[in-house]
């Protein structure tokens, strides 16, 4: 077999594999969309609106600045809350790993916090604080902080002892120890924690906006509910889902680049 034939075969195998991947990604959504569209023929629009209407509303939100700004506001609230919770969680995590007393004190408190429903935090925030943005930031941090902290603690504790000893044998300063060992060692678990908390945060932010805000996707959903506008409710929901998917893709891309050193097996689980 000559080189041209070999590369042509490789190309066609790649095309088939890519085609299959796209098919299995898209197929479930096509089926759901088809069923929905079929249902829209027999039910009133406030129950099952036509997908054409939903699509038009999605485009309208994206093209109208006053509406798009609501989506961006919600996105910023999610990212701001996650960033705040991550910074505080990372500090608490480091303190807990360094001090067993801090660990003994903080672990039960954070576990207790984990048991408090997001809606309770919303109520507390409305009672305690006046500013809308601060309320939402507080809710976001309170609901995602325990998970971030425990994930940071887990990542730090699971660092490879052999590698730690090797690094210590070169007597690094604190900053070098952190940048050369700690950060790359814990990064995979940190990114995973961001992925997990992103989903949680997107659900919590909607609840927070629904109850205590005059803007954002949650507030818009409340308006659609009052208007009995299912197409609008779907369109606003899809905006949030798109944002989460987009950010998940970004995190996956970072993972792909940052963890290219990982060995891969040809055999899958």
């Amino acid at each position: 077999m000559n080189d041209a034939t070999t590369s042509s075969t490789k190309l066609s195998l790649f095309a088939v594999a890519t085609g299959q991947k796209i098919f299995w990604t898209v197929a479930p959504f096509v089926v759901i969309a088809a069923v929905w569209q079929f249902a829209s023929q027999f039910f009133p629009p406030f129950l099952f609106p036509s997908l054409v209407d939903v699509f038009a509303r999605v485009i309208d939100i994206l093209m109208t600045w006053s509406k798009l700004s609501s989506v961006l506001t919600t996105a910023m609230r999610i990212l701001g809350g996650l960033a705040g919770a991550f910074v505080i969680g990372a500090i608490l995590g480091f303190v807990m790993v360094q001090s067993k007393y801090a660990d003994r004190f903080l672990s039960p408190v954070l576990t207790f916090f984990q048991g408090i429903p997001a809606l309770s935090w919303v109520v507390f925030a409305i009672i305690w604080f006046h500013g809308v943005e601060f309320r939402i930031l507080f809710i976001m941090i309170a609901t995602t902080l325990p998970a971030f902290t425990f994930q940071v603690v887990g990542a730090l504790r699971s660092m490879n002892k052999d590698l730690l000893e090797m690094v210590m044998s070169f007597r690094p300063g604190r900053l070098k120890f952190f940048t050369a060992m700690v950060l790359p060692a814990v990064l995979p678990e940190i990114l995973t924690s961001w992925k997990v908390n992103l989903g949680n945060a997107s659900r919590v932010v909607v609840v927070a906006e629904l109850v205590g805000s005059s803007g954002g996707v949650g507030f818009q959903l409340l308006r659609q509910q009052q208007l009995f506008d299912m197409a609008g409710a779907l369109a606003w929901t899809l905006q949030l889902v798109f944002f989460v998917l987009l950010f998940q893709r970004l995190l996956s891309f970072i993972e792909k680049v940052a963890f290219r050193y990982r060995a891969t097996s040809e055999r899958r689980l």
Partner: peptide
């Protein structure tokens, strides 16, 4: 002892991300 002592361990202990 920074820079004055170096260790070769039983296993290679290479940093996998480097």
């Amino acid at each position: 002892f920074r820079g004055k002592m170096a260790i070769v361990f039983q296993n290679d202990r290479l940093l996998p991300w480097r």
